[in-house]
């Protein structure tokens, strides 16, 4: 378990968290390479299915990072995303995977430090939870190709 390197999928809004990741890079801030970023035009684009499929295909944790409350470029995409994350959490609890494997974060484009800290803390949280139980039980699922 000590060597466990979780696979984290982060759906990041183009207008905030993705730019914050860029900012973190510009500032030479380190964050774990475990976090695989998927840029989306708005977190409102991220459906429950995107999060579930990320887990089904082997991710150990998934988070959605959108704009600060009230700052969504498309008015309410981030609040919709937060409600979808809550829905997926409940669904994951129901099927025994555990809702704590998905999370919603909010940040602005200038918050490079927050992006790096969030990525590190979420990675540590998933590391402490251990591998996605579906991945452990299904050897065909490698986390990258299943």
């Amino acid at each position: 378990m000590e060597n466990f390197q979780p696979v984290i999928v982060a759906f990041c809004c183009h207008y905030c968290a993705y730019t914050a990741a860029d900012m973190a890079g510009s500032k030479r801030l380190h964050y774990p390479a475990n976090v695989k970023i998927i840029r989306v035009p708005c977190t409102g684009k991220v459906s429950a299915l995107h999060m579930m499929e990320a887990l089904r295909k082997g991710a150990d944790g998934v988070y959605v990072a959108g704009c600060l409350e009230g700052d969504c470029h498309f008015r309410s995409g981030n609040t919709r995303a937060a409600r979808r994350v809550a829905y997926v959490k409940k669904l994951l609890d129901e099927i025994g995977i555990g809702g704590e494997r998905v999370e919603m974060f909010c940040m602005s484009a200038g918050m490079g430090e927050v992006f790096a800290r969030t990525a590190s803390e979420f990675t540590e949280k998933i590391r402490s939870l251990g591998p996605n139980p579906a991945r452990v039980a299904d050897p065909a699922c490698t986390g990258t190709a299943c």
Binding site: S47, R56, I95, A134, A137
Partner: peptide, 19 residues
Amino acid sequence: RKEVALLSSALQLHFMKEG
């Protein structure tokens, strides 16, 4: 179609976990 895909994903995840 969306709900079918979501339920399918959830059931598959559950049974993968159960092995």
